[in-house]
Amino acid sequence: MDYTCLLCNQLEAVTESCPNCGEIMENLGLLQDFYDPYSPYLDQEIYQDNYLQNDDDHCVHLLACGKCGYEKFSAYRRQWEKTTIV
């Protein structure tokens, strides 16, 4: 079974509002991408450390408000991807 993150693959957009000002927050990317300069190029499994549900079933994204600068980490459940062989 393959799972995919809808945010990582841009199949879904962030619709969460900023708790400070109400603006729609922006997805800045995966939490792992901010660990070190090489982390975006490494396998995600290296960084599965249970930080805010960072595991096989979730992707943790950094969300930020462009208006007031508020930032937060949010875990998004990966969806099952049906693959067919033709």
Rank of each mutant, 00 (worst) to 15 (best):
L6N: 08
V86S: 13
Q32N: 05
W80Q: 15
K72D: 02
E16D: 15
C21P: 01
L52M: 15
W80F: 14
I46G: 04
D36C: 13
A13G: 05
N20G: 02
Y70Q: 02
T84L: 09
D2S: 11
N54H: 10
C65D: 08
A75F: 08
F73D: 06
E16V: 13
G22E: 09
G69N: 03
C68P: 00
S17A: 15
D55L: 01
H58V: 10
Y47S: 07
R77H: 14
L31K: 00
Q79S: 15
S39E: 04
L30Y: 00
Q10N: 09
C21Y: 01
I46F: 09
W80A: 14
C18T: 11
G69V: 01
L31W: 02
G22L: 08
P40I: 07
C59P: 05
D43F: 03
R77I: 11
E23H: 13
I46V: 14
R77A: 14
G29P: 02
E12C: 09
Y38I: 12
Y35E: 08
E81H: 12
A75N: 10
A13C: 06
L7V: 07
G29R: 01
Y51D: 06
H61G: 04
P19C: 11
C21S: 01
G69Y: 03
K82H: 15
C5K: 00
Q79E: 14
Q79C: 13
E23R: 10
E45M: 05
N50A: 13
N9A: 03
D33S: 11
V14P: 02
Q79W: 04
M25T: 02
S74H: 07
T4V: 13
H61S: 05
G66S: 11
D33W: 06
P19E: 03
G69S: 00
E12D: 12
